[in-house]
Amino acid sequence: MTIIIDILSAVFLAGGAFFCLVGGIGLVRMPDFYTRMHGASVTETLGAGFMLIGLMLQAGLTLVAVKLAMIGLLILFASPTATHALAKAALLSGLKPKLGEQHSGEGGISSKP
């Protein structure tokens, strides 16, 4: 039983590590600020979430697991607020997003600079 939990935990930790790395790569590769935020949000949701689940599986039903869950809840509630504040501030300060790199002929969406 413990072996199964260990394997599950390792899988979740590996997944978390993978998604954190993907977020970091997105942060470096993406062309402009607004698209970089999408990369970072992968780290903040799936990367952090998987890693915390992996740690929770190792902790078992203890206070440590509850604290890990609190950290997860904190990330889930606070990080979108910070991201939204950043995006809004960037738009207010006049930073224009690059729009439509590919198939930029399709209509139907009210896109605004």
Binding site: V22, I25, G26, R29, V42, P97, E101, Q102, S111
Partner: peptide
């Protein structure tokens, strides 16, 4: 999309 070599992104603003 991030790991794709050509990065098939098409950023849009939607209201």
């Amino acid at each position: 999309r991030i790991l794709h070599p050509k990065m098939p992104i098409s950023p849009t603003m939607v209201e």
